[in-house]
């Protein structure tokens, strides 16, 4: 059985059909790319998977458990973490607090223990402090731990967002255009970074990306979306020559 099974997802916004009959399977350890022209519905698929939207119809199974109808925080607790197309860090919070926040659900103390800093509070807080710091150290960000997230340079903000997603120890990581706004050397670095976390954290990754260099370079498999529907699926080199994909990206020749 696949780790994640998305089956026949359809999403209507009023009269607009943003996603129609979309299906996807993720096998454990896979790195799959979701590509398609702007407005094809890629981010909507992410929003449905993470519980921001409830699909009009369709089912999503993670390890056999249905995710449709669960709240975003409940889905996050089941091991689905994501990043955003336009970076959505908690800007005025420190780098460390951004990482610590992602472990909110794993901190085992109640409001009363928090009010008086008693009981399990100290031990639990110490544990996540260590965890967050070691995670930051792993990516050479420990010196910036006390810095506000908004003060980091752009590339590091992207990276911090991924680290924040990793902090919750997800099984599946959804990356929404991680290379947006990066230049070729930065993209090279990001590719190495993604491959590194994939291996070290035993992740299954689904990523949305426009940078073909990245998509062709690291993805095991590609899914192409246009107008909310899957138009092609296959290995990167197959997709490159797929007639419908070329049509979606380059348009149809007049008179054809």
């Amino acid at each position: 059985m696949s780790l994640l099974e998305v089956e026949h997802i359809t999403q209507h916004f009023g009269g607009l059909c943003a996603v129609s009959d979309f299906s996807l399977r993720l096998e454990p350890g896979e790195l799959v790319g979701l590509i398609g022209p702007n407005g094809a519905g890629k981010t909507t698929v992410f929003n449905i998977m993470t519980g921001v939207y409830r699909p009009t119809s369709g089912r999503i199974h993670l390890d056999g458990e249905d995710l449709v109808g669960l709240s975003p925080s409940a889905i996050h607790a089941r091991g689905l973490a994501r990043t955003f197309q336009n970076i959505r860090l908690f800007k005025k919070m420190t780098v460390l607090d951004n990482v610590r926040l992602a472990r909110y659900a794993r901190l085992g103390y109640n409001p009363l223990e928090a009010l008086f800093h008693v009981g399990r509070f100290r031990a639990e807080e110490l544990k996540i402090l260590e965890h967050a710091r070691s995670l930051l150290a792993l990516f050479h960000l420990e010196d910036a731990a006390g810095e506000r997230a908004e003060n980091l340079p752009y590339g590091l903000q992207r990276k911090l967002e991924i680290i924040r997603a990793l902090a919750s120890q997800p099984r599946i990581l959804l990356l929404d255009e991680p290379a947006a706004g990066m230049n070729p050397p930065e993209i090279e670095e990001l590719m190495a970074f993604i491959q590194r976390i994939r291996k070290e954290f035993a992740l299954t990754i689904l990523l949305i990306e426009h940078q073909m260099r990245l998509v062709m370079g690291i993805c095991d498999r590609l899914v192409v979306l246009d107008f909310g529907a899957t138009i092609a699926e296959g290995l990167p080199h197959e997709i490159q020559k797929h007639p419908q994909v070329l049509q979606a990206y380059l348009g149809v020749e007049v008179g054809e």
């Binding site: 993470t50 519980g51 921001v52 709240s71 975003p72 925080s73 996050h76 607790a77 973490a81 994501r82 955003f84 959505r88 860090l89 908690f90 800007k91 005025k92 919070m93 607090d97 610590r100 926040l101 992602a102 472990r103 909110y104 659900a105 901190l107 103390y109 409001p111 928090a114 009010l115 008086f116 800093h117 509070f121 807080e125 924040r164 919750s168």
Partner: peptide
């Protein structure tokens, strides 16, 4: 005490970006 606990961090994150906060597993 409250501010320097997971609830306090949750509050700050709600202020910064409520949707992202929810997606980080916080029971907003």
């Amino acid at each position: 005490n409250l501010v320097f606990s997971k609830y306090g961090r949750g509050m700050a994150a709600i202020r910064e970006d409520e949707v992202a906060c929810d997606l980080c597993g916080v029971h907003t």
